[in-house]
Design a protein around this nucleic acid. Structure first.
Lengths: 199, 199
DNA sequence: ATTGAAAGTTCTCTAAAGGTTCTCTATGCT
DNA sequence: AGCATAGAGAACCTTTAGAGAACTTTCAAT
């Protein structure tokens, strides 16, 4: 756990290295975060090293290296790279964190478990959970949770037609698109993402 | 059980951490729940720690951490029901909370972006992110991230054969299973789940 | 190879802010 | 009355933040 100043110090060092390709000196860090004493910076840098965020090469000017540990928010996971069959894992050059809070947190987010296979061509399988956002603002071609006649709920791609009707399009050739007058269809939410955790 | 004020305190702390990624100070909590005395907050925070909702690092500023039990409460989404994507059926009202922390949190969890379509019959599509667990303990028939000859990484279902060899089975009829001697295959991690967030 | 400016290291000091420990008061409940 | 819950606030200790002096070391220009 970093203090406010330690975090500022770390972020400055990290940015500096990213831009310049070389670590900053203590006075540079000091100037960068608005401090006049390099002694103070030395203390912060030592603390960062002790906490494992950077490694120091003692006595060497600009002897700061970043460790793999990245600044992560409370709920995030590292995206380490891309895997493609038959190729080495292609490490992502800039270490990326996926902020899970931005995907899952928020008013009106909820999950639904999917039954059936009508969206199978979108890769939405029986048993999957879909992340939904409660909203009335729907764009054409969004995947929506639609309530038909305030009775039947269904997951389909929504298409507004010129004549005011709405067509719900499944992603499975075995099923046919269905067209309804707008007043019979009410959108409960839109599809944000998919979460599948087998077992 | 928590008293009214303890509950308010806890909820403020939990929200604060979720948003800021760092714990609040006692005066901040006090202001947040409309109290002027930090001494009072200290009492509540101690109580929460004793009851196991948070852990405290003594004397450290902002030294409050949510316990894993609390974390899973804070980081969960309601599973509102089941939506049938085939024949339109009504959405169910079984109210369950899905604990996202148990899916995503933990040592050695990371994400990989998938390229290619070799697992398409498992519903793992190009561009999806897979949640992985770094481990060496692999069960037969797990989906694994395997490294072949310490070079090629690939996502396949793993099958141990009686003769000691290992077969990696794709989920796409266009690709064939491949059998290797065990020493050529090293497992980098196992497939925990799938996360897809379009756009 | 020398050398001096810049960088790193080690201190001591100060102040502000956060955490800790009290005591005191009030209110509602049994 | 006795107890649990709530709150105010004073007093005190510790951490965090910062300044800056004094010293040693590195490194690059001469």
């Amino acid at each position: 756990m970093l203090t406010e100043s330690e975090k500022k110090t770390y972020m400055f060092i990290s940015d500096y290295i990213k831009q310049q390709g070389i670590a900053p000196t203590l006075p540079e860090i000091a100037a960068g975060i608005g401090i006049s004493s390099k002694g103070v910076i030395h203390r912060y840098v030592q603390a960062l090293a002790e906490k494992g965020w950077i490694t120091l090469i003692p006595k060497v000017h600009r002897g700061i290296k970043l460790t793999s540990k990245a600044l992560s928010k409370a709920f995030s996971l590292p995206l380490l790279g891309t895997i493609a069959a038959g190729q080495p894992i292609e490490a992502i050059q800039t270490h990326t964190e996926i902020d899970l809070a931005s995907i899952f947190a928020g008013e009106g987010r909820y999950l639904l478990r999917v039954r059936g296979d009508s969206m199978i061509d979108e890769g939405i399988y029986d048993g999957d959970m879909i992340i939904c956002q409660q909203t009335t603002q729907v764009h054409n071609n969004d995947i929506v949770i639609a309530l038909i006649d305030k009775q039947e709920a269904t997951l389909k791609r929504l298409q507004r037609n010129i004549d005011g009707t709405i067509t719900l399009i499944p992603a499975n050739p075995s099923y046919s698109p269905m067209t309804y007058p707008a007043h019979r269809v009410s959108v409960q939410g839109i599809f944000i993402g998919l979460l599948r955790v087998p077992r």
